[in-house]
Computed example of a mutant assay.
Amino acid sequence: MAAKLSLSLLAAVSIAAAQTCPLQFEGRIPADATPEFFDESTSLFNTEYNLGADLKWSQVIVFPEVEPSLFDTETRPFEITINDDSIFAPSPDNVQTGFRRAELLPMSNDGSDPSTEGIKTLHFSLQKDMARPLNLSHEYQLVFVETADYSTNQFALKTGTLLDGSFTGEPDTLILQSNVASPRELFSVAFAEGVWHNFALVLNFEENTTQVYYSANADPLESVGEAEPNDLSGRGQYHFGILKKPTGEFGDMTREGYQPSGIDEGVIYGGIFMEDSVGECVSLAP
């Protein structure tokens, strides 16, 4: 059964009032960073994937004037944007014209690293940019992990009009789904404007479960339900950004379907990091 915001339960894990759990990877951006930081070899994210062919991340990233997210105490939020040129081409014979996409992948996350072993907690926050609104007639994936063989996503945070009809509520909703091979709703909340939506996902790769923590703005994270069964097998890589799927008729959605012209859309991200929940440690606040 999907967890709703009103179902705030105490988690059966040890909690940390402040962030003291060991880090698996860091994705919070230095306070003095410029967009060019994402192009450099010292970037916290992969400098080549996944963005439009011939684009640099400095052409995709902007720094909006917003308050810091929950865990951005000495770091700064950033915005990922997409436009008509956001056509990813992983190879010359695989040009993904059905999608418009720009997603950051942590530099240390190569698909077989420890981020998909043991018990890990993934933290991230996101916020709307009303100056670059999403087109909610489309389905978007905003945070997800993709298996090493590219066959499925073990979880996906979505918004908009879902193509498979698995969510029939208001499209302006953040919907966290389980493994998309057989998706179930783990949590949903209205994608309200002017609000930081803070998430922590406890990913138990040993027991194949996912537990969701959520809060808004500067409030500490709270559990919204118990750990739910969820197939997390397959290793893989974490994606943070915009994957906009097509509408209309298509067979291969990566190359077919309809995308409008004149796209200028964005989502603001902050507080991205993963901690090792050894000893069942989960940070609820900075």
Rank of each mutant, 00 (worst) to 15 (best):
M1F: 15
L7S: 15
A11Q: 02
A12F: 06
A17C: 09
A18C: 06
T20F: 12
Q24L: 13
E26K: 03
I29P: 00
P30F: 15
D32Q: 14
A33H: 11
T34R: 14
P35G: 07
F37N: 02
F37V: 11
F38S: 02
T42G: 13
S43M: 12
L44G: 03
T47E: 00
T47W: 01
N50R: 02
K56P: 00
W57D: 00
S58C: 06
V60Q: 06
V62Y: 12
V62Q: 15
F63K: 15
P68V: 10
D72P: 01
P77M: 14
T81G: 09
D84C: 02
D85Y: 12
D85R: 15
F88R: 06
P92W: 04
Q96F: 05
T97R: 05
F99G: 03
R100T: 11
R101Q: 06
A102T: 08
E103D: 03
M107H: 07
N109F: 05
D110V: 12
G111N: 08
S112N: 13
P114S: 04
P114F: 05
P114Q: 02
G118S: 12
I119R: 13
T121G: 01
L122I: 15
L122F: 12
H123I: 13
Q127G: 10
M130I: 10
M130A: 11
R132Q: 08
R132D: 03
L136M: 15
Y140Q: 05
Q141R: 01
Q141S: 08
V143R: 00
V145N: 04
A148R: 08
D149R: 12
D149W: 09
S151M: 11
T152P: 02
T152R: 12
N153S: 11
Q154K: 04
F155S: 03
L157F: 09
T159C: 13
G160M: 10
T161H: 01
F167A: 09
T173V: 14
I175Y: 05
Q177H: 06
Q177S: 11
V180G: 06
P183H: 04
P183Y: 08
E185Q: 15
E185G: 04
L186Y: 07
F187Q: 03
F187K: 12
V189S: 04
E193F: 06
G194T: 00
V195C: 10
V195K: 11
V195P: 11
W196I: 03
N198A: 12
L201Q: 00
L203I: 10
L203S: 04
T210P: 00
Y214G: 04
P220S: 03
V224N: 07
A227V: 05
A227G: 03
P229F: 15
N230T: 13
N230L: 10
D231F: 05
R235N: 04
R235Y: 11
Q237C: 10
K244D: 06
K244V: 13
P246C: 11
T247R: 06
G248Q: 10
E249V: 13
E256Y: 13
Y258N: 12
Q259L: 13
Q259Y: 05
P260H: 05
I263R: 02
G266C: 08
V267P: 06
G271Q: 01
G271C: 03
M274D: 01
D276I: 09
C281M: 08
V282M: 11
S283G: 02
A285H: 04
